[in-house]
Design a protein around this nucleic acid. Structure first.
Lengths: 278, 278
DNA sequence: GGAATAGTGTCTCTAAGACAGTATGGT
DNA sequence: ACCATACTGTCTTAGAGACACTATTCC
């Protein structure tokens, strides 16, 4: 598990710009919304101004590898570097809505396709020095996609691209940290939730589901035991009637399943070796 | 487990004010820091302005009850209501640093006392309608305190007060949700981390540690089994040499322990009944 | 002695790890 | 024929639940 607070933010503090004296005053004793020293009249300028963005760590499993959606930056700083997709939160939407909107834009998928996808708020990155130009607070989200037929549509999203997670080189800003946190979180959630099915299409084989676990965790699992565990967990998967599906040419075709109604796994499906993060 | 995205933020959208056309433009195609349509020159006003605050869910176990630190609001809206302590993030500090600063201010504890305390970022609340006056994005933190000798110091913090978690009535803003999320998260983290020792003083008995689990989870645990599990987990607790401590008058004095170097529990200490949240 | 809490020991049962063996498809 | 994958079954072991029992203190 990753250490998870950025409390020691003092390192970036000297570098940060104090934009206005007004802001400083508000932070010190105005304390908007918390105590009443300033009285009821509210001055919209009496708070420190921040930009709020969302950053997305979008994962899929393709070709037995964990892949992440990246964009190439077209402007400085970090011009030419890879970065996580993302953008501004608009004045009239929540961060979650912004994340879903950005996901649709960057993948080129339609709103209907994006709606049922799993979007999970990871954490918020707020170090004063994380963007050299100004104060930006970013709410990070992790998204899980099945390996969709339309890789990234044909719209504005032509610059977004799937990159294997382990070759995702140095990214812009603090996006390496965000990506690592996202990978950790997804791996941990596979243990005690039914999240893995979100990496799979509507109908999938147990081999494909096992592939998700093996790819995200980077381990090999025993097939009979995996099978037993999944089938013994009520509501994790449901058998689909009908003919089995051939598995990539070779071997016996496998029975199809779909995601069941359960969302949590009890007891959890712990990864081998005990340690939560590799 | 609690549903965890606020994607359906459209409900508050109609109520929100569009402050500037500039902001809207920035959100639509400026996309600061993501793509290069606007060129390299950066206009500090070309982003939607947000206020960023931190909210703290500060827990302790006292008198065998889970208690949370609340403040009473002195101004509208929600004047007179209880609320979570919190305040603005300053221009030169991270949200984590702001949370630690606010924790020190609200509890009246010194910076040295506050430094080693566990502060965990929960999630960020960003619904456009969550504050009726303006757009405020709040990063929520959970903090765990041992039952300290100085309940809340003697400074500005006279208005902060410990309240039993189950009687924490309707709170201001969306603080009921934040508090519920915080309780959920703390409960879940007790299962697979050594966090429980953070509720205890430097030296504690196994009975006190068990009391933490029972209080946060709201269940009864079998003492021998709890003992066996804790002692069998390497690095969870260490025996302290010296005389045992009498336990509240009655009964045999208990041996003292201190927190060990481990941070994760493998395998986890699952709560009874299987369900993650009560 | 009785009540209360600390601590030990033991039996049982669940579920995970390991792995042998069978079934059914492709080439 | 051979290989690859799907699926079944069995043995073993780690660890949790349940609970009987002993130890030490205050009243």
């Amino acid at each position: 598990m990753r250490a998870d607070d950025e409390t020691a933010g003092a390192g970036g503090a000297t570098r940060a710009t104090r934009t206005t004296g007004v802001a400083e005053t508000a932070g010190k004793d105005g304390k908007y919304g918390k105590d009443g020293a300033a009285g009821d009249a509210y001055d919209p300028r009496a708070f420190p101004p921040f930009a709020v963005t969302v950053d997305l760590a979008v994962f899929t499993v393709r070709d037995a590898r964990l892949q992440v959606l990246l964009v190439r930056r077209g402007e400085s700083p970090y011009r030419g570097s890879w970065a996580l997709p993302g953008g501004f939160v608009r004045p009239d939407e929540s961060a979650g809505a912004a994340a879903r909107r950005e996901l649709a834009e960057e993948t080129g998928l339609g709103a209907d396709t994006v709606r049922p996808l799993h979007l999970e708020q990871l954490r918020t990155y707020s170090d004063p020095g994380r963007d050299p130009r100004m104060r930006v607070v970013s709410v990070a989200y992790a998204a899980l996609l099945p390996d969709l037929p339309e890789p990234r549509g044909g719209g504005d999203a032509a610059h977004a691209q799937w990159v294997p997670r382990d070759t995702a080189g140095p990214l812009a800003f603090d996006h390496d940290t965000i990506l690592a946190d996202a990978h950790d979180r997804i791996g941990a959630k596979l243990e005690y939730t039914c999240l893995a099915t979100r990496f799979c299409p509507a109908e999938f084989t147990l081999g494909e589901l096992q592939q998700v676990y093996e790819t995200v965790w980077g381990v090999q699992l025993d097939r009979p035991n995996f099978r037993r565990k999944v089938l013994a967990t009520p509501g994790f998967v449901e058998a689909v009637e009908g003919p089995p599906r051939p598995t990539g040419g070779r071997g016996k075709p496998a029975a199809l399943h779909r995601a069941g109604p359960a969302s949590a796994l009890h007891p959890p499906l712990l990864r081998p070796e005990g340690r939560p993060s590799p």
